[in-house]
Simulated scan of single mutants.
Amino acid sequence: MQVKLTPRLEKIASLVENHSRVADIGTDHGYIPLYLLQNRISSFAIASDVNKKPLESAEANIKIYGYGGKIETRLGGGLATLRPGEVDTIIIAGMGGLLISDILEEAQDIVESTKTFILQPMQAQEELRRYLVKNGFCIKLDQLVKEDHRIYEIIVAEKGTQTVEKDIFYTVGFHLKSNPLPLAEEFIQRKMMIYEKIMNDIKGLTSDGAKEKYGMAHDMFNELREVMAWLKE
Rank of each mutant, 00 (worst) to 15 (best):
V3W: 08
R8M: 11
E10N: 09
K11T: 14
S14E: 12
E17Q: 14
N18R: 14
H19S: 14
S20Y: 03
V22C: 04
D24N: 10
I25Y: 01
G26W: 06
T27C: 14
Y31R: 05
P33M: 03
L34V: 07
Y35T: 04
Q38P: 09
Q38H: 08
N39A: 04
S42P: 10
S43Y: 04
F44K: 07
F44S: 04
A45H: 02
I46K: 03
V50M: 13
V50D: 00
K52D: 13
K52M: 14
L55Q: 09
S57M: 13
S57P: 02
E59Q: 14
E59K: 15
A60N: 08
I62E: 04
I62L: 04
K63C: 07
G66Q: 10
R74P: 07
G76R: 10
G77P: 09
G78P: 10
A80C: 03
R83G: 01
E86W: 00
V87K: 01
I91F: 07
I91N: 09
G94D: 11
L98Y: 03
L99S: 12
L99M: 11
D102S: 14
D102R: 15
I103G: 01
E106Q: 15
A107Y: 03
V111M: 06
E112L: 13
S113V: 08
T114L: 05
T114D: 09
F117G: 01
F117K: 06
I118H: 08
L119A: 01
M122E: 07
Q123H: 08
E127L: 15
L128P: 12
L128H: 02
L128M: 03
R129I: 03
V133I: 04
K134V: 00
C138H: 13
I139R: 07
K140W: 01
L141T: 12
E147A: 05
H149M: 11
I151C: 07
Y152N: 01
I154N: 01
V156E: 02
A157T: 05
T163E: 14
E165S: 13
K166R: 14
D167M: 09
F174G: 09
S178R: 12
N179Q: 03
L181G: 04
P182N: 11
L183W: 06
E186G: 11
K191P: 11
K191T: 00
M192R: 15
M193Y: 03
M193D: 14
E196F: 05
K197C: 00
K197N: 13
D201A: 11
I202H: 11
K203E: 12
K203A: 13
K203N: 12
K203I: 08
D208G: 02
G209Q: 08
G209V: 06
K211E: 12
K211I: 12
K213R: 15
K213M: 10
M220Q: 10
F221K: 14
E223N: 13
R225H: 09
E226W: 00
E226P: 00
M228E: 05
A229I: 14
E233G: 10
